[in-house]
Nucleic acid binder design. Structure first.
Lengths: 116, 116
DNA sequence: GCTTTATATGAGCATATAGTTATATACGAG
DNA sequence: CTCGTATATAACTATATGCTCATATAAAGC
């Protein structure tokens, strides 16, 4: 029973589907979580490493990591006392690339207004 | 002075850039706004049409349209009493495609757990 | 000018969420 | 077993945001 949905399908999307998609974007709509993802672009890291790299508190970092893991964006493995997280969803890379691109355009559009 | 940024650049992203990117995702992290975008995938529409298509109140729809327009995701033109909105940022299509794809995977992954 | 229509926006309320403090739990070393 | 370390989580607070109601503003017709 594979689950199939597409935003550009002509059929209407259910409220449930929209909520799920929105939730997906919401997970990424948070600077701290983006900071964590960015740190993990370089490869798997422990919670402690991420705490140091992002400058956040251990509790806060842990909470955000949980959110990302529950969304299956991160994979998690434990080794003794340490827990390691890594990017588990490759589409994250493409997503961020797209958003940065359209953000650049948006900013350039704003810059044009000032240039006039 | 073109503005250039990329999520996968090895240089650290400023807090400002992360906030802007997060804000970008936040605009999409809302079912009503997704519903509006979905309706506009079919082409330009007036506010009133969007109110009917989405079943939202005029006030709420108008407010969300403003958010999307301010983010340069929608373009806006006025004709007499009516205002028409249309998708202005083509990367929206690709964005939603990517998110739907990874959401499917995430749901299928969950379905696997139940299948066992 | 007056009335109607279409849209944007102010103000208020309810809910969600980020960050913090404190602490529970698991793991490892002595 | 005790103590220290690493991480997750409960509880609380402050802030942001979605939605609604009311209304301001613009445009069109008579």
């Amino acid at each position: 029973m594979p689950f199939k949905l597409a935003m550009k399908a002509p059929r209407p999307l259910s409220d449930e589907a929209l909520a799920l998609i929105a939730r997906r974007f919401a997970v990424l709509a948070e600077p701290t979580r983006l900071r964590l993802l960015h740190a993990l672009f370089a490869g798997e890291k422990s919670v402690n490493e991420l705490v140091e790299l992002t400058g956040g508190t251990q509790a806060n970092v842990s909470r955000h990591l949980q959110t990302l893991a529950h969304a299956h964006m991160l994979g998690r493995r434990k080794e003794g006392l340490q827990v390691f997280y890594a990017i588990a969803d490759p589409s994250i890379f493409k997503l961020c690339e797209l958003v940065c691109g359209s953000l650049e355009k948006s900013l350039n559009k704003q810059a044009e207004v000032f240039a006039q």
